[in-house]
């Protein structure tokens, strides 16, 4: 076994090959979505096989590419309905959910990670247990609580509360696990220097936990961004709908406008990809935790 650095580094070419194969697997279905979106038509595409197809015929047939390029589906999505407004609502709700969810999750996760107190195990388990409830029959009681009791129907706040509470269990567990890996010595020495708990948390723990915070932020954002049934149920004003609700209009019931749906789906996935682009620098900023330990 050589200990030289060179041999420890994997050769990059095979890695790229593996990645490229997976890129094809990942992109292939998505390319169909793009094809449908840009086709200007409303049906899901099917493979066009010529008679006595050869290998190449079949290969050409399975390539996703629209017969005619058209952006009419995209323009229709925005002109037929107040889709821009719905995107804005989604953005407001998703950002607020992310902020609230990550904040609440950080404080609880920190307590679960750093303090030993009665009820800790039960509390942590209860977050997990909450994810086990099948949602089938929760809609009516949730409606009663949010709309009837709290009077938060047709408000941003109602959905923000529901979504952040939905996202919190995962966030707490994720962050707690990550906080556990951050050495305590750092905080203890800061404590000895007279720093308050809040200062320690914001100045020392949080910066070190950036990758985990990035993951939880992404997760909270997506929870709020993609949900439609509660948004459609709690909102009684057309101006308060969110983008996923708008998307659902295209494919419900008898009529199925897949072209519009695909176009809308592409539009709604752009912010998520953008958010990921923004967050990924935190995901890979493998700077700290270990470095300070050494």
């Amino acid at each position: 076994m050589s200990t030289s650095r060179r041999s420890q580094e994997f050769p990059h070419l095979p890695l790229h090959l593996i990645l490229l194969v997976y890129v094809v697997v990942t992109l292939y279905p998505l390319l169909w979505v793009f094809t449908i979106g840009f086709s200007g038509q409303q049906n899901l595409m099917i493979v066009d096989i010529p008679a006595n197809a050869t290998f190449l015929d079949r290969l050409r047939a399975i390539m996703p590419w629209p017969a005619h390029l058209s952006v009419s589906n995209f323009t229709s999505v925005f002109t037929e309905q107040p889709f821009a407004r719905w995107l804005l609502n989604s953005a407001v709700i998703a950002i607020a959910t992310t902020v609230l969810g990550v904040f609440l999750a950080c404080t609880s996760a920190y307590a679960f990670s750093r303090f030993r107190f009665p009820g800790r195990r039960v509390g942590l388990m209860s977050f997990l247990v909450s994810q086990m409830f099948p949602g089938t029959l929760m809609m009516i009681p949730l409606y009663i609580i949010i709309v009837q009791v709290l009077g938060l129907g047709s408000t941003y706040l109602g959905l923000i509360l529901v979504y952040s509470i939905t996202a919190i269990p995962f966030c707490v567990w994720m962050l707690k696990g990550y906080f556990d890996t951050i050495p305590r010595e750092l905080e203890e020495s800061a404590l000895m220097d007279g720093a308050s708990a809040a200062v320690i948390f914001y100045r020392i723990v949080l910066p070190l936990a950036k990758p985990a915070v990035a993951v939880t932020a992404l997760f909270s954002f997506m929870t709020a961004w993609n949900e439609y049934i509660q948004a459609a149920t709690f909102m009684d004003k057309i101006n308060m709908y969110t983008a996923p609700v708008g998307l659902k209009f295209f494919v419900g019931g008898f009529e199925q406008q897949w072209g519009y749906f695909a176009a809308g789906a592409i539009v709604t996935s752009i912010p998520i990809v953008a958010l990921f682009l923004f967050l990924q620098k935190y995901l890979i900023s493998g700077l700290t935790a270990g470095a300070v330990k050494g």
């Binding site: 609440l104 977050f127 909450s130 009681p141």
Partner: peptide
């Protein structure tokens, strides 16, 4: 004695009780 820990965890736990466990009780 552990008021700090409870303060930190209370908001999240309370939200869960109200919006997850209460509806679950109905189920």
């Amino acid at each position: 004695k552990h008021h700090q820990a409870y303060t930190y965890t209370f908001p999240a736990i309370f939200g869960m009780l109200l919006l997850v466990f209460l509806p679950f009780l109905y189920g």
